[in-house]
Simulated scan of single mutants.
Amino acid sequence: MREMSPFRLLISREKALETILSTVRPIRRTEKVPIEEAGGRVLAVDIRAERDVPPFDRAAMDGYAVKAEDTFKASQFNPVRLKIVGVLHAGESTGRRIRNGECIRIATGCQIPPGANAVVIMEVTEEKDGSVLVFKAVHPGANIALRGEDIKRGEDILRRGDVLTPARIGVLASLGYGDVLVYQRPRVAVIPTGSEVCDVGKPLGEGQVYDVNSYTLSSIILENGASVTRSPIVPDEIDEIRSAVTKHLDHDLIVFSGGSSVGEKDLLVRVVEELGELLFHGVQIKPGKPTLFGLVEETPIFGMPGYPTSCLSNAYIFLVPAVRRMARLP
């Protein structure tokens, strides 16, 4: 029977985190995704506006497009009468030029017709016999959103590395982008180990408990910008653990649950040392002391404690910063 090997020199939480963050690297792979699927992703290219937003002068309120000068003498007791020469509903425009004494009823967002330089809001008007009475004067430019008022052509709008929030997705849509270049999500393999754990949905054997850790770890990883491959449970056999490592080396990060404590069947330490480099094993933290971190063929490997509370705690302390760094998230 092989004797249990004690932890090597325990390192501090700060040193462990420093080691992890100096080892993992931000993902450089990129992909184009539809903007409706780009929320929370990290932009991989600078965005410069190729058009003005709005692309034309438009009505900011429902009302009447007018020559502002025609309304200067309007008041509550002495309204100005203007002839209605057209109606514009949402999405419509006209080439009809407004002359003095005329107006066009206009909906919010419509292009301002030629000759008009203001919009009188509905609330200060009264329609009567094909005309409108205006009870309040407006100044030139009133209730008009000018071309380029939101975004000007040639303006730098978004930068590479920006996280695409809903507001930024809206900006992309306003510029006509249907898809956008983003960094790929890190690919993380989550591998539960131990003959004592049983997958959910199956009957428990004698002395077994359900696999909790691979599900909590997967949830945390997904929440922090990565994609997850969840492996079937790997038994406590060195060949099986070695095979699990080599099989998942095409991932950006491998996370084992269990197999990092000091015990005769905790074999992950031996496998990492055999295949790569063990960077630390054991952290001065409680719960969560039996945490492992190493490198195999440039793929970082975590060994998280098997006890669910310790696993969850250390996932937030060590795994989340690593995943977010790889995903280029703040």
Rank of each mutant, 00 (worst) to 15 (best):
L10V: 14
T19K: 13
I27A: 04
R29E: 15
K32W: 15
I35C: 04
A38G: 01
A38V: 04
A38Q: 05
V42G: 02
A44V: 07
V45A: 03
E50L: 08
F56W: 05
A59R: 01
A60V: 04
D62E: 11
A68L: 06
A74H: 05
R81M: 13
L82A: 06
I84C: 00
G86H: 08
E92Q: 15
R96P: 05
R97N: 05
R99F: 07
N100L: 08
I106F: 00
A107M: 08
G109T: 02
A116E: 00
A116F: 00
V119G: 00
M122E: 15
D129R: 10
F135Q: 02
K136M: 14
A137K: 13
G141D: 00
L146P: 01
G148V: 11
D150S: 12
I151N: 02
R160L: 04
D162T: 12
V163N: 01
R168M: 04
R185L: 11
R185P: 07
P186Y: 06
A189K: 00
V190D: 09
E206F: 14
S214D: 04
T216C: 08
S218Y: 03
S218N: 06
N224A: 03
N224Q: 03
V228C: 14
S231E: 12
E240W: 11
E240P: 02
I241G: 04
R242H: 10
S243N: 13
H248L: 09
H248V: 08
H251M: 04
G259V: 04
S260W: 00
S261E: 04
V262E: 08
G263H: 10
E273W: 00
G276H: 07
E277R: 07
V283M: 00
V283C: 01
Q284C: 08
P287S: 10
G288I: 13
L292G: 06
L295P: 00
V296Y: 01
F302R: 03
M304I: 10
P305Y: 09
S310C: 07
N314T: 15
N314L: 08
F318K: 05
V320Y: 02
R325G: 05
R325Q: 14
